[in-house]
Design a protein around this nucleic acid. Sequence first.
DNA 1: GGTGCATGTCATCGAGCGATGACAGGAGGC
DNA 2: GCCTCCTGTCATCGCTCGATGACATGCACC
Lengths: 188, 188
Amino acid sequence: MSTSDDIPARARDADATRDDLLAAARRRFAADGYERTTIRAVAGDVGVDAALVIRYFGSKEGLFTRAADLDLRLPDLTGVRAGDLSRVLVDRFFAVWEDDGTFLALLRAAATSEVAAEAMRTVFAAQVAPALAAVTDDRAPERAALVGATVLGFALGRYVLRLPPLVDMTRDQAQAWLGPALRHYLLD
Amino acid sequence: MSTSDDIPARARDADATRDDLLAAARRRFAADGYERTTIRAVAGDVGVDAALVIRYFGSKEGLFTRAADLDLRLPDLTGVRAGDLSRVLVDRFFAVWEDDGTFLALLRAAATSEVAAEAMRTVFAAQVAPALAAVTDDRAPERAALVGATVLGFALGRYVLRLPPLVDMTRDQAQAWLGPALRHYLLD
DNA sequence: GGTGCATGTCATCGAGCGATGACAGGAGGC
DNA sequence: GCCTCCTGTCATCGCTCGATGACATGCACC
């Protein structure tokens, strides 16, 4: 009896535990934001003691930094025809926002945390602006920022504020609405 | 000596104190977000004991609700020519965002607080959608949400994330960029 | 000029947080 | 079979926060 009803016997594998903690942290940061997310809750989700999180990531901020380390995997836009640009970008948008909580965690946290805001600026400078520079003639940083603001505004409305018209919108409808706006920012 | 070096002798005026507390709360909520704003800090800004805040507003959430009670003062758009619409809206945008911290407080808080998100939804339903319904033929809620997402995205990038290209933009430049996008959302 | 209520203060509680350091236990090397 | 790290736990600290209720103070009114 003492051996048969044990907890599923979590393997003593530090790497796996670290990955589980990062996944749980992303979910919590995305759902609750930075301040309301507690180390105890993240550890509890994984079934581990809170002190272990500190040991692995040093501090709550260290955990967040690792959990919000984010890669948009924007494709190379060189050679993509102007008419297809917005379609590619909106597709990418949904992949990033709906299949993984990382970006939502970063957005929620960025509203109140300067480190998160800085991380967001870095994403723009290192990923968005270079990708868009391949398809614009001039003012690439400005265009990238406007495209980013559009995308972030839509994500804010749909996933954070949950404005009903945006929540109910299908991907195709979003495509149809956002497409012309993105084309304007990229090409006009 | 005991009477000459007193503190400026705050008058015992409950209404004035309440107003001061609300103004201080707006500044704190706008700068720090909901969780990082403490009742003690707000009371300290006004030079008053924290217990008084509870007495006047019941709780931290009560204080926030009152501080974030917000009026966009959108003008009546009936009869405004299509070509002037976006100009009117962007002008209003800057008035709301740069002259008063209320909306910024609401945005920052909405990222992590459900009550704040609900307040934001109410602003859309009660103020933005009706105002825009006067100038659109159909799908007014959808158009209002898209206009709102545009405006919120721009504000997020400029005031919260402080993306350099958006921070450096003049009102006229913002006008020129956002205008066609807003026209698209309103009229296409 | 004293009395009573409105205004504001003080001391304190209980809870939850991040973080620390000492300890336990299992797996692998000799 | 024992020793030794690596992995994870436990007890606890120190702090801050929101909130409460008893107390002090000043103004208005009679």
